[in-house]
Design a protein around this nucleic acid. Structure first.
Lengths: 338, 338
DNA sequence: TTGTATGCGTTATCAA
DNA sequence: TTGATAACGCATACAA
């Protein structure tokens, strides 16, 4: 089972013409007689010739491939982003190499170096939770490879980024709870040392202040992972400790659902006793009981916009920019909070 | 912002030595003096040299890249599979190119051709729902490129495949419902013209027969898409039409959850009035209310095994095989059915 | 209108 | 121990 992919030479030999003629014919070069062009194209079809992109890449110094590094693919949000990226990439003749950092700094660095070795034409990165430094990002830029961040961006890098306004999204979600008359609002955050988490906490606090409520740090809980019902456990513990709560803003939908389970188990009803808002608007939000209010995070769009921004950098060969594109979120109000 | 990636020539020039010497030094060739080797390696680090995999690929006729074609990335199951693939690929020095067919035959063909052009060392494919013919698969094999199918495999192709026993999984799920005393069991299938769906229907029917129940074709409902609460609508319609049902086996978790919503809305309780089992065991299964019984489908493992099988084909350069690896599913029994 | 030579970055082969 | 050369597949400047 050896590799038998036809090359331009095979066609040339088969017809008795030079490889360059074949190349020109296949690329519809004007200075080629119709007769030979036809003959060559026919033979190409016959031999099922497909251009070798590896050779083309070497010649053109462009692989028509872009590299993506994301924390974890199995998160609905990130797989939506990838879908968006792939869509735009495909429409523009690019293919996508996906790597997962698994939230590890070390893996992220290795992924970046591997993608650079593969000579991707550009990189799209969403930073891992574990952040040590930015040297690998600088490395990308030093090599003149276009780089765009999405969703999670490092604080001190000059590079375009596509994000949502986490502070504002959290503000609106919290504000909504306050508007429902809630006064003891809990926030379940996901890894509070991440910039986006910090922004969400900030928005949460600002809403409380604007609503005339006191900020109580003990009402801000860190759920470092969103696996295995951690929010369920934490919520249950809080309830057993006698916490008073009538509103809950969770940093992602899974955390919200875990907490709701604990609340119900404790005999509380949603939304009567506790109004709940999640984050990401997974598609099961309107299928759970009660349907979960959530901040819609436009994953697919983020992917599309990020890829488009990257393409612009690739074709325009522009100088380092620091523009930030902020995508709209939308609070989807469902029964869990109204 | 031009591409400034150092090459072997840059190092050679900087030190005043030939490119081949640099190549040998970097590859720890024995016949190279320690002195020059050190000098070259130092300079390589200084210039942040990274081998150009494109050039290597052309030379070695191997890209160390494998192509994956899946129906849709945003499905939890498929993103799990990709994770597994990526894991094994990474451990073996491979990178992964992911394409989505979006369940379209035409797109699948284009993806395959694009990946062949990229000269991937092998392909992992899960077939789109829309199936017209197998010529593009044959094409892959004709070119001598290793090919492995996972989850969804075409019926008449000689190629290794990694699948689950859909018939048996459905049998067990249905059998479990029967064991709970259920007698009017509904099956919500997802695209009943797909081979895996047919297998699940077969398992469903076999369980009914084994349990002494009559197979009623009107109790087998096709939900061609799992988006937008289609199962909710269909279930509601059935209930309004006065269907009698005390058990439900759904072909995926989202269908199950949509149906549960309709059942509840109709005043029925789960599992008292209707016992429900889903398929895939998404991580929110034990977070919904009531926790949803489901057939656990080992996505990550499927990805790992498929990639391992493909690697074996790549390195061993073996003849066309037709082996089938069947991964174990496990019925996760939760409150929704017991 | 077509052929020849060259180079993209790397390594294997042969020569020195 | 090191250097020159050729080759991987393709496109293109230059020659014919």
């Amino acid at each position: 089972m050896k590799n038998k992919q036809a090359t331009i030479k095979d066609i040339a030999k088969a017809i008795g013409v030079s490889p360059s003629t074949v190349s020109r014919a296949l690329n519809d070069h004007p200075a080629i007689s119709k007769a030979t062009k036809e003959k060559i194209k026919a033979k190409a079809r016959e031999l099922r010739y497909e251009p070798n992109i590896v050779a083309l890449s070497l010649k053109n110094r462009s692989t028509k491939t872009i590299g993506v590094v994301i924390p974890e693919l199995i998160h609905f949000f990130f797989s939506s982003v990838i879908s968006g990226i792939e869509e735009v990439a495909y429409d523009n003749g690019y293919t996508v190499m996906v790597c997962q950092s698994n939230e590890s700094y070390e893996k992220e660095v290795k992924d970046v170096m591997a993608l650079l070795s593969h000579r991707v034409d550009g990189l799209l990165i969403s930073q891992a939770k574990e952040i040590l430094n930015n040297t690998h990002y600088k490395e990308i830029q030093d090599r003149g490879v276009p780089l765009v961040f999405f969703d999670r961006k490092p604080v001190d890098m000059i590079a375009p980024s596509i994000i949502i306004d986490d502070e504002n999204a959290a503000y609106e979600a919290t504000r909504h709870l306050i508007d429902q008359g809630r006064k003891s609002i809990l926030h379940l955050g996901n890894n509070l040392n991440m910039p986006i988490s910090i922004n969400r906490v900030d928005g949460f606090k600002r809403a409380l202040k604007d609503g005339g409520l006191v900020v109580d740090e003990s009402m801000i809980i860190d759920c470092p992972s969103d696996q295995q019902g951690i929010s369920y456990d934490k919520m249950l513990k809080l309830l057993e400790d006698g916490i008073k709560v009538d509103g809950l803003f969770a940093s992602n939908d899974l955390l919200a659902i875990g907490a709701i389970k604990a609340l119900k188990q404790f005999g509380l009803s949603i939304p009567e006793d506790v109004a709940v808002v999640g984050f990401s608007n997974w598609k099961f939000c309107d299928m759970v009981d009660p349907p979960l209010s959530s901040v819609d995070q436009p994953g697919r769009k983020m992917g599309r916009v990020a890829m488009e921004r990257l393409l612009k950098m690739i074709v325009q060969d522009e100088e380092k920019q620091n523009d930030v594109t902020i995508l709209d979120t939308k609070l989807m109000i469902r029964k869990s909070s109204s």
